[in-house]
Amino acid sequence: MFLKKISLFNYKNFSEANFEFDVKINCFVGKNGVGKTNVLDAIYHLANGKSYFNPLAVQNIKHNEEFFVVDGEFEKNERTEQIVSSFKKGQKKILKRNGKSYEKFSDHIGFIPLVIISPADNDLIIEGSETRRKFIDTVISQLDANYLQKLIQYQKIIMQRNALLKYFALNHVFENDTLSIYNEQLNSLGQIIFEKRKQFIDDFLPIFNRYHKEITNSSEQVQLVYESHLFEADTITLLEKNLAKDRALHYTSVGIHKDDLSFQIDNYPIKKFGSQGQQKSFLIALKLAQFEFVKKQSGEKPILLFDDIFDKLDEFRVSKIVAMVNEDQFGQLFISDTHPERTEEIVKSTHQSYKIFNL
């Protein structure tokens, strides 16, 4: 599978731009602010129906314009697949495959497997648990449509339960029977999601450890530790035990929507005890493991986006990534970089076909 070409209209800083791509390596080079990352984000947009960096659709429209369109042509299983994402102010976002609109964007997730590695991934370390849950859910959802639907259902019921808790507080009433209906639904869905996440970590961890050793050539021990209330008790037990707390807070304080993934190095949190270099290596290993995991599970090589990472890596780590390209571990690559000469030197050393776009 690969992206053959893409057209952008009023997307971020582009009024109109068209690119035709090499099946292997494509590089966008130029100074900061010219739109290199925006092209990568447009590719991500086609795979996921949204931006990686600006989740609000209106933020992706070029200033002083009313709409944007991103139109891409992929080759998948020897068939041409046209994916179009568009949005006009005041209207719903539209996602089409071969001219037909998706009723649910979730039906598109996983059709174009894709992994992005970006400086923005540092949020996985410094931000709260929601960011790391999103990482787990993104990987599993690309491969398991049923998981994604269960997750969407769970989130809707949490919103309904929270609304009910607020209603109770505002009206000084309490209806345990109504609350119990939500508790039972959360218990059923929560257990399925918990088991899937647990299995994912068990399968993912050996791949992550292997990539970390390859990239760092290091004896450091790194850990991904899945943290969930459901290791203590089932969801119904947790909800009943925390009922007084939930009524006081007006929201649901326990459940799989509070899960976290602890990033550790030598059994200590990497956020506090890892150097900048250790954190970068950890994140790149995490994303390369995501790539490998999706590739194994789906039978396809995902499109891989490298956003400005060569500027953040030393020569040793760059050489390791180049070696992986040489071994044909990756499919189609897209790279952004501020140094044209460095980029050309790196891609030439892979002995693969490539195109360089100067922006």
Rank of each mutant, 00 (worst) to 15 (best):
I346H: 06
R132P: 06
R317T: 06
V39C: 06
Q82E: 15
D203K: 10
L243N: 12
E220W: 01
I346K: 07
T237L: 00
S7P: 00
Y44M: 04
I6L: 15
I61Q: 05
I158A: 10
G299F: 05
Y226C: 06
K89G: 07
Y11H: 08
F21S: 09
V225E: 14
D71I: 02
N48M: 14
L40A: 07
E220V: 03
N18W: 00
V325P: 01
M159A: 13
R317G: 08
S319C: 01
T178L: 15
H45D: 08
Y147N: 05
L230C: 04
T235A: 10
N217G: 14
R132F: 11
D203A: 11
S101Y: 00
L283I: 14
G110R: 07
S219E: 13
F263E: 05
K271R: 15
N162Q: 04
H108E: 04
K50W: 02
K96M: 14
I140D: 07
K24H: 11
I126S: 13
I284T: 05
D260M: 06
L165F: 11
Y226I: 05
N171L: 04
I109W: 00
D41T: 11
T237N: 11
F174V: 00
R97H: 12
L3N: 06
S85W: 02
K4C: 00
F53V: 12
S106N: 13
K36N: 07
T338W: 01
I215Y: 01
I43T: 04
Q185N: 14
R197P: 03
D307M: 06
K280G: 08
L46T: 12
K196S: 15
F357Y: 14
D307F: 05
Q352L: 11
N48Y: 15
Y251A: 09
N98Q: 07
Q160D: 04
L46I: 07
P55M: 04
A57F: 12
R133G: 11
N98T: 04
E300D: 14
T138S: 15
V34N: 10
S336T: 15
N146S: 12
Q329L: 14
K258H: 14
A289W: 09
F68M: 04
V325K: 10
F316H: 11
N10P: 02
G277W: 10
K245D: 07
N60Y: 02
I265A: 09
K134H: 11
N217M: 09
R132I: 07
L261V: 07
A42N: 08
S336W: 02
Y154G: 00
A169C: 03
I117A: 05
L261R: 02
E20H: 08
T131I: 13
D337L: 10
Q142L: 12
G274P: 08
K50D: 01
K258W: 04
F316V: 10
L243E: 13
L165Y: 11
N267M: 05
A145G: 05
Q191M: 12
K12P: 08
L179G: 10
E232L: 10
V254A: 08
I309Q: 03
I284H: 05
E184W: 01
